[in-house]
Design a protein around this nucleic acid. Structure first.
Lengths: 206, 206
DNA sequence: CGTAGGTTTGATACATTTCAAAGACTGTGG
DNA sequence: CCACAGTCTTTGAAATGTATCAAACCTACG
C-alpha cells in the first residue's frame, strides 16, 4: 500500500495498460475518460476524495484516468485487494454500494448527454458541482447565508469533454448564464450561483 | 418468488414507484429508461435473459422499466433478496461482477451519446445487437457460414431514445446503410449484416 | 376494405460546430 | 517591475448536421 502524487494533466494510467492497481482518492479531482481512434474524447466520470479508482476483477482497463488538479491517491495491488474483498464481506458490500451509485450517476448523465440541450447541460453540470461543494462543507454553517460559491477543478476543455460539446459552446453558455444574472464568474474557474432556483429549473431535472 | 409475464409496451414499474422487488429476466427484452419533465426520454439500458432488474439497497427507483417484447421475469421481495445477499458472499460477488459490467457498458455508451455522429451511433448500435445475437446462438454452428442476421426487439422510437436522436434520423441512417450495401433490411426489424468489417469501421470503435 | 400505428421520405429551420481572431491570464527572464 | 511567450478563454461569422414539420407509404388487423 503506497501513496502517490500527481500534478494536473498527469495520467494516472492509460486505457491500454493492464490493471494492476486499485486505489482510493485522498485529495484532488481525477478525470475518467475514453478516447476514440481519431482523438475525440468523452469524460465518463469525475472522482473526488474517498472515490475508488480501478476496475476490480478485470485484467484490462476500459478507461483512462488523469489528474485534473493536484491529486494524492493510495494504491493497493489489485489481486491483493481482490483477495481481501473476497474474505471481508463488509468491504465487498461497500464496494457494491459504491458501484451501484456510480451506475446511477452514469445513467443520470446519459440522459443529459442524449436528451438535454447545451444550456441545460451546462446548468445541470453547475448544479451538480454546486451540490458536490455543499456536501464537502462543514454541516454546521449550513444552510449557508451566502450564495453557493465553488471553484471548478476543470478547464473548459474538460467540461466540454464531459458535456459532449465544444469549448466554444461551453464558453458561450456560461456567458449567457452570467449575462442573465443566474451566475457570477468571480474568475474563470470560480462560480457564484446567484439564482439557484433558476439554475435548477434551467437544468430540466427529472 | 413468483413469475410474471408482460406484453410489449407494458410497464414493469415506473420511475416513482418504491422498489419492492428484485427480479431476473427469464425471456424477452426489457427497456430501462428515464424521462424528463417535458416527456423527452432516454433509454439507459436494455436487459436480456439472465440480466438483473431492480436496484438493491435503495428504497427509491432511479429508472423506469418497460417490456420491449413479450417478457417473463422471476421476482423476489427486495429485502429478502438483500438478506440472502448479505449471507452468501458468492451471490454478492456475482452481483458485484454484474454491476461492474453494467457500469462499463454505461460508460461505453456515454462515449457514443456524447461524441459520435448519428451514423456512427447507428453502426455502433447494430454492431452491439449483432454481437448480442451471436452470443445467444448455439456455439456449435459458429463461426457461421451465413452473414449475421438478427431481429431487433425494438421499435424505431425505442432505438431513437437509446441513441439520443429522432426516429427520422434513425430511419435515414438505416436507409443510408442499406443503400450502401452494408446491411440488408429483410423486414423493418430484421437486419442482415452484409459487410461486418465496414460496419465496424463505421462505428469508430475505441 | 378501411383504419390505425409505425416507418420512410422530403423541405425547411435551427442549434451547435467549425474556423478564425482577439483577449485574458500565467509564468519566466531580462 | 515590465516585456514576452505560451496557453486558455471569449467572441464573431459561416458552415453543417440534426431536429422539426408535413405528407406519403406500408403493414397488420378488425
Amino acid at each position: 500500500m503506497i501513496h502517490k502524487n500527481f500534478v494536473p494533466g498527469q495520467p494516472l494510467w492509460s486505457e491500454e495498460d493492464e490493471a494492476h492497481v486499485f486505489a482510493i482518492v485522498i485529495s484532488g479531482t481525477v478525470k475518467l475518460f475514453k478516447m476514440l481512434a481519431d482523438g475525440r474524447q468523452q469524460v465518463v466520470g469525475f472522482l473526488f476524495p474517498s472515490d475508488c479508482l480501478g476496475r476490480a476483477f478485470s485484467e484490462t482497463r476500459q478507461t483512462s484516468a488523469e489528474a485534473a488538479t493536484d491529486v494524492e491517491i493510495c494504491c493497493f495491488p489489485r489481486q491483493q485487494f481482490e483477495h481481501v474483498l473476497k474474505h471481508h464481506s463488509e468491504l465487498e458490500y461497500a464496494l457494491l454500494e459504491k458501484t451501484l451509485n456510480d451506475l446511477d450517476r452514469a445513467r443520470d448523465w446519459m440522459v443529459a448527454l442524449g436528451r438535454k440541450s447545451a444550456s441545460e447541460k451546462i446548468a445541470s453540470f453547475l448544479l451538480q458541482m454546486s451540490h458536490k461543494s455543499e456536501l464537502t462543507k462543514c454541516p454546521h454553517n449550513r444552510p449557508s447565508p451566502n450564495l453557493p460559491t465553488f471553484v471548478l477543478p476543470f478547464s473548459r476543455n474538460e467540461i466540454a469533454d464531459y458535456l459532449g460539446m465544444t469549448i466554444e459552446t461551453v464558453s458561450r453558455n456560461l456567458t449567457k448564464l452570467r449575462v442573465s444574472g443566474v451566475i457570477r464568474l468571480v474568475d474563470g474557474r470560480t462560480v457564484e450561483v446567484c439564482d439557484p432556483d433558476e439554475l435548477a429549473s434551467l437544468a430540466e431535472l427529472q
